[in-house]
Write a protein that binds this DNA or RNA. Structure first.
Length: 285
DNA sequence: CAAAGGTCCTGCTCGC
DNA sequence: TGCGAGCAGGACCTTT
């Protein structure tokens, strides 16, 4: 599920239950996520209060206060969460009855002093739940990340510069998290269509002007998707926190063989970096 | 058997 | 020869 807008929407959905709440208990039923949940994490988390929740790329950072018990900064830190390919959260309320039934792939719960159960589900187990010591933003996985696509530095000049000395396809450049975070397979395809760039074009063969257009497309499309997610989130705590893509607005992704909305040409699907890549051969050069 | 919306890690090649 | 950077492919999983 999760691309950047979905992660942002997830965060919005979780804040009302978690931000400022005390984590009474972490219950882990399956430790084997992408990286195994470290033994003893339950103890580290217990009794701490969530002081901040933020997103970096597709990671969710949950900052926790010092446990009053250990005053040293040795153990201050937070949780690092990634949803992988199939992760999602639901928020349940204690005494919800049938909704609270644990299903297959419900790997862990965060239980708060407000009576909420924040339940993580992830069939493919590509997600993670990690302890980050100290400042979570300085964790190895976070520190090395590229810039945020919604930051001002993300622009045509930046992309053009990043492409120098490289030969890979522009779509793979765009999906490289060391350069820019949060642009996944769907939004890479959509942004490239919007800016009229062929996904397989060598990234060093694109002018700064065209990169400017691409950066604008990325920003516009992500922003629209986040807004849409935000507007459908009302029931996050009651139902399934599945924001879902705004499928009716996808121009190329998943539309192989169908007519391009702009020119009528059939949409193609090629493989790039082992990922399916949809584009219009006429609109995108 | 193929494919699914992620991304880290390994090992190869290339150029200095 | 040695080193770093860039890059492709493998790895991790279950479900449809």
């Amino acid at each position: 599920m999760p691309e950047l807008p979905e992660v942002e929407t997830t965060l919005t959905g979780l804040r009302p239950s978690l931000l400022g709440a005390k984590i009474v208990r972490l219950v882990v039923r399956e430790r084997r996520l992408r990286w195994h949940i470290q033994s003893g994490l339950e103890g580290k988390v217990r009794g701490r209060t969530v002081t901040a929740m933020r997103r970096r790329g597709k990671y969710i950072l949950i900052h926790l206060d010092d446990n009053e018990l250990d005053c040293g900064d040795l153990d201050c830190g937070g949780l690092l969460i990634h949803l992988g390919m199939s992760g999602s959260f639901r928020v349940l309320t204690k005494n919800t009855g049938k909704n609270a039934a644990i299903e297959t792939h419900d790997h862990y719960d965060l239980i708060t002093d407000r009576g909420h159960i924040v339940r993580y589900r992830d069939p493919r187990r590509f997600g993670c739940l990690l302890w980050a010591s100290g400042d979570p933003t300085q964790h190895k996985l976070i520190r090395a990340l590229g810039i945020e696509p919604l930051d001002l530095e993300f622009n045509g000049k930046y992309l053009h510069h990043a492409a120098k000395g490289r030969t890979l396809a522009v779509k793979n450049l765009l999906m490289n998290g060391k350069i820019v975070v949060g642009v996944g397979n769907i939004y890479a395809a959509e942004s490239l269509f919007d800016s009229g760039i062929h996904p397989a074009r060598g990234c060093h063969r694109i002018s700064e002007q065209r990169y400017r257009r691409l950066a604008d497309s990325v920003r516009t499309i992500l922003t629209a998707a986040i807004q849409q997610g935000g507007s459908t989130i009302r029931d996050f705590a009651a139902a399934d926190g599945q924001p879902g893509y705004f499928e009716q607005e996808l121009m190329v992704y998943g539309r192989e063989g169908k007519q391009c909305y702009t020119c009528g040409t059939r949409i193609r699907n090629i493989t790039l970096g082992q990922r399916s890549t949809f584009y219009c051969p006429r609109c995108q050069r």
